[in-house]
């Protein structure tokens, strides 16, 4: 589905990604965990073509998509749910969702868009009630639902998610992760970045660990959960076996 080779990118003079190589197979949930400032957001933004790749290549479904415009990434079936939701706050929930299907409308896909809105409302029934409310007035959890819904509007095969749990209460995080799992069960492929390493490793198939712009570890989710380095650095105090020692 997605293959990245030796990807480098950054901002002006600041080089953030120092040669990233990874792959995501069709139907997998793959996660990237890492400390603040490691470059996880930069990586997803580079895949979505919001940040320009300086070197390396990004292959999506067998086609080289490095350096193409963001709208063509969307048309190639890859959509990003950005960090911090990034909704259109002064527009209604429905308008936000409709804009997610912008590339569909261009291809006269109004019908598909209407069906997709219906599916999103059945996935998040609360959004149906909030349809005419301005997105900026929603609660954090509802905003995250809109962000996910908006990204699903074109029916993408690959969903990139940047810290969907950020700033949400544990019970809402649980719901969001359940949705992520059910999306995989519907056949979607998901690359998800998270601070909440333990929760995400529990639903993921595989994971990568990122440190200052490089991937330093890769493995099955269960193996990473058991790995001592990962435990020490990312899984925190939940793990009594460490704190007790």
């Amino acid at each position: 589905m997605l293959k990245i080779r030796n990807l480098e990118s950054g901002y002006d003079k600041l080089k953030v990604l120092k040669g990233i190589s990874l792959h995501v197979n069709s139907g997998e949930i793959v996660t990237i965990i890492g400390a603040n400032g490691a470059g996880k957001t930069t990586l997803l933004n580079t895949i979505a073509s919001i940040v320009k790749a300086a070197d390396g290549e990004i292959i999506l479904n067998g086609t080289d998509v490095t350096g193409i415009t963001p709208d063509r990434i969307v048309k190639n079936g890859c959509v990003l749910v950005p960090e911090g939701r990034q909704l259109f706050p002064a527009m209604t929930v429905r308008e936000n969702l409709i804009l997610g299907a912008y590339t569909l409308f261009r291809k006269k896909g109004k019908k598909t868009a209407k069906e997709n809105i219906k599916n999103i409302y059945s996935m998040f029934p609360i959004l149906k009630d909030r349809e005419r409310q301005l997105a900026g007035t929603l609660s954090g959890g509802e905003q995250q639902m809109v962000a996910i819904g908006r990204a699903l509007m074109t029916g993408p095969e690959l969903l990139l998610m940047d810290e969907p749990s950020m700033g949400l209460a544990p019970i809402i995080v649980k719901n969001i992760f359940r949705v992520v799992e059910s999306l995989r069960d519907q056949g979607k492929t998901i690359l998800i970045v998270e601070q909440n390493a333990r929760a995400v490793l529990e639903i993921a198939d595989r994971g990568y660990v990122m440190e200052t712009g490089s991937l330093v570890m890769e493995g099955n989710a269960e193996d990473l959960l058991d790995n001592n380095d990962v435990k020490r650095a990312y899984l925190g105090r939940d793990y009594k076996e460490f704190t007790d020692k």
Binding site: P70, L87, M91, I98, L99
Partner: peptide, 21 residues
């Protein structure tokens, strides 16, 4: 849709790009 897309650009340019606008 075009009018909405123009408003979207003024509200959040980056998000507008992510929507394929």
């Amino acid at each position: 849709l075009t009018g909405q897309a123009m408003r979207a650009c003024s509200e959040n340019l980056r998000a507008a790009k992510l929507c394929g606008i």
